[in-house]
Simulated assay, not measured.
Amino acid sequence: MKISQVVTARTSEVVTADDPVPRHDQVLVEVLACGVCTSDIGPWLSHATTAPPVRLGHEMVGRVVAAGRDAGRWALGDVVTGLGGDGFATLAVMDAHAILPVPAGIEPAHALGEPVAVVEEALSRTKTGAGDRVAVVGLGFMGLALVQLAKRHAPGLLVGVDPDPARRERALLLGADLVFDPAELPQEYRTETNRQADARLDIVLEATGATGGLKTAGSLVRPFGTLCVVGYHHTGDAKMDMDLWYKAVTVVNGFCPDRTRVMSAMRDALDLVAQRRFSYEPLITHRFGLDQVDDAFRAMKESPADFVKGVLVP
């Protein structure tokens, strides 16, 4: 098989390796698509030349080409998505208990199970209801996915916040009612101006992964509202904003370490994909070959106006 690996900072190479052999509880898949995730950009940016190569890619869709003895419910030719690793390759193994079938009629690049499951699981713990006033802060891939997923709960108002005008325009096309640059947010959305009609939001979904975005998100939540931290805060101090404490805000950690919960959310999300109530089509803007992994990460880092998410198609 062919597999891409990071050999030094910002440099990958495609090598030939032995085909992986699935264990008794695994399937071997021909990789049809693998999303390029922001959580992988750190190793790509900083990998030391003296360190062993790193293999990345966990947002996979693949066609089953072999199955272990305890994975017989999956037939050869089944197209599946789920949790896995080393997906920047032509072949990969996946846990037979952590995959689901791709909905009929959906192309592989539009059926990545893991990323939408992560977002849906986080949203499910905010208890968004009809009529709630909701904001999404950060309108990259995760934020635009949240806009789509939140819209189905019939919010009374859905606001998108991002400094990038192209991202704000996409949010409007995906269902946001209003969009703002964070520097131009109306004052009534951030502070109490009318005690009888507080304009701040019931639920705020933070999807920036940056301390500044987290602060903006916190300022938008009304007293006794909910802040869900969906963004990945790998860097920065992300200190607790004590205004949240004084407002008695419920803070939800959008990260989920439990595979069973993620798989349950994936099942729900793929049902939405099958029903055309959630679509990757406006989110997958760039496609790359296996020998273009570095181009994919560069596009993610530079984030030009036409970029939302990249997918490798080996």
Rank of each mutant, 00 (worst) to 15 (best):
K2M: 07
V7D: 06
T8Y: 07
T16Q: 13
P22M: 07
D25V: 08
L32P: 04
C34Q: 07
V36G: 02
T38D: 07
D40T: 04
G42M: 06
H47A: 07
H47V: 10
T50A: 15
P53Y: 10
L56D: 06
M60I: 06
V61P: 03
V65L: 10
R69G: 04
A71H: 01
D78K: 11
D78S: 10
L83S: 04
T90H: 11
A92M: 08
H97S: 10
H97L: 07
L100F: 15
P103Y: 03
G105N: 12
A109M: 14
H110K: 15
G113V: 02
E114P: 10
A117P: 13
A117C: 08
T128W: 05
A145H: 01
L149F: 00
A150W: 00
H153F: 15
G156M: 15
G156H: 13
D162F: 00
A166D: 11
A166P: 09
R167Q: 12
A171Q: 05
L172P: 15
L172Q: 13
A176P: 04
L185G: 05
Y189N: 07
T191F: 05
T191C: 05
E192L: 12
E192V: 05
R195T: 11
A197L: 15
R200G: 01
R200F: 00
I203F: 03
V204T: 09
V204F: 01
A207C: 06
T208W: 06
G213I: 11
A217P: 03
V221I: 12
V229M: 05
V229K: 00
K239M: 12
A248Y: 14
V252L: 09
G254N: 07
D258I: 09
D258G: 05
M263F: 08
S264P: 13
R267H: 12
A269Y: 02
L272P: 04
V273C: 06
R277N: 02
F278L: 01
H286F: 00
H286W: 01
G289I: 15
D291P: 08
D295Q: 11
F297K: 04
R298V: 07
K301W: 13
S303D: 06
L312I: 11
